[in-house]
């Protein structure tokens, strides 16, 4: 959901291809692009003798299509929370009893037994974060913690807005701004969403979910829809870039480790999950990707800049909004809105 890097993915893949052949068999890991800490994999290989093979995807839909077609032969996949129920409904995941694994107690109480996997029978959190937007506070000095900045921008930001190029994420944000439920099947409310987004379009410079950091740092746009982890990387290069926690609700997502039903090495998959539940390993992944792992004990092992990052600490009392898997009718309405915006 949050790391579709166009150009850099080959680097990790190439580094991992050089791993030594393991006597303990293999582990086929299927993860989002640019989302697996290379050091983590090396450590796991050294510790267990298992050879890890990494393959990557760029959307939940790709993952679903691949698993549904029976292809891949993967041992671990990393679906977002809203896709876990779909994978379960399609019978594509196997039970791993994560709640009985050593190290499970390290997971923060807030992220145990989530609605998409009660009792953690199938999944543990890999990385979690939020989707909001980043504003160049050098250009706009007012309060940024409202979606109004994005959808009805002040004069300073008009024509300088960047949005994701994904109907689901843009429309979810518009629905949150308007105070309507996500995955909306109410055509009157979706009409309001359309009106809002059509009125917003003249202020939008670009719809693109890639290269966000580049556009923000180069000043090409002054506000851009963004994920919290990516916002850290942007602020590293330009300190005036601040991440917003909108009062209307912060859209939150969780990507989870899960084991497909037809995994060939389920034991190695469980070893990897247990390995990841150890705080120092979860922290290594967070240090690489810039997202929280949901592991309460990991904080001690985080790099100093991650410990203090405002992007990683959602303000207490913030309203969290979780997307869920939408019905066919809701998706059809989203598609209709999107076509009308871009026709």
């Amino acid at each position: 959901m949050k790391h579709r890097k166009l150009l850099a993915f080959a680097v990790t893949a190439a580094a991992l291809a050089a791993a030594p052949a393991g006597a303990e068999g293999k582990l086929y890991l299927y993860n989002w692009t640019d989302y697996t800490a290379p050091g983590l994999i090396e450590k796991f290989e050294k510790e267990t003798g298992v050879e890890v093979v990494l393959d990557t995807y760029d959307s939940n839909e790709t993952l679903l299509a691949k698993l549904k077609s029976g292809g891949g032969g993967y041992d671990i996949v990393v679906p977002s929370h809203n896709f876990v129920p779909i994978l379960l409904e399609e019978g594509l995941l196997q039970e791993i009893g994560a709640d009985k694994m050593p190290g499970f107690s390290n997971i923060s109480k807030a992220w145990r037994s989530p609605p998409w996997d009660p009792g953690n029978r199938y999944t543990v959190p890999w990385q979690l974060g939020s989707t909001s937007f980043t504003v160049d506070t050098g250009a706009y000095a007012g309060d940024i913690n409202t979606y109004k900045i994005l959808f009805e921008p002040p004069a300073e930001l008009q024509g300088q807005i960047g949005m994701f190029n994904s109907p689901d994420e843009v429309i979810s944000m518009a629905l949150t701004y308007l105070g309507f439920p996500l995955c909306n099947e109410n055509s009157a409310q979706m009409k309001e969403v359309r009106d809002l987004l059509v009125a917003q379009k003249p202020h939008v410079k670009v719809y693109n979910s890639d290269g966000i950091k580049d556009r923000l740092v180069s000043g090409e746009v002054l506000a851009h829809m963004n994920w919290n982890g990516y916002s850290i990387r942007a602020r590293d290069e330009k300190p005036s870039l601040h991440y917003a926690y909108p009062k209307e609700g912060v859209i939150t997502w969780v990507d989870n480790l899960a084991v497909p039903k037809d995994a060939k090495n389920p034991e190695n998959a469980k070893r990897f999950i247990a390995f990841f539940l150890r705080p120092e390993n979860a922290a290594a992944q967070s240090n690489f990707a810039g997202y929280d792992s949901g592991n309460a004990e990991a904080a001690a092992h985080l790099d100093a800049d991650k410990k203090s990052a405002p992007e990683l600490s959602t303000p207490a009392g913030a309203k969290l909004v979780f997307s869920s898997s939408c019905s066919q009718q809701a998706i059809a309405l989203q598609d209709k809105v999107w076509t009308e915006i871009k026709k």
């Binding site: 790709t62 670009v206 989203q334």
Partner: peptide, 25 residues
């Protein structure tokens, strides 16, 4: 169209791609 055109308008290519991904049609 997506990279250089800023994805502001749909082309046939992006329309088809959209239907196989997020619009799931």
């Amino acid at each position: 169209p997506d990279l250089l055109g800023g994805g502001r308008k749909l082309m046939i290519g992006s329309l088809i791609q959209l239907q196989f991904s997020s619009s799931r049609n």
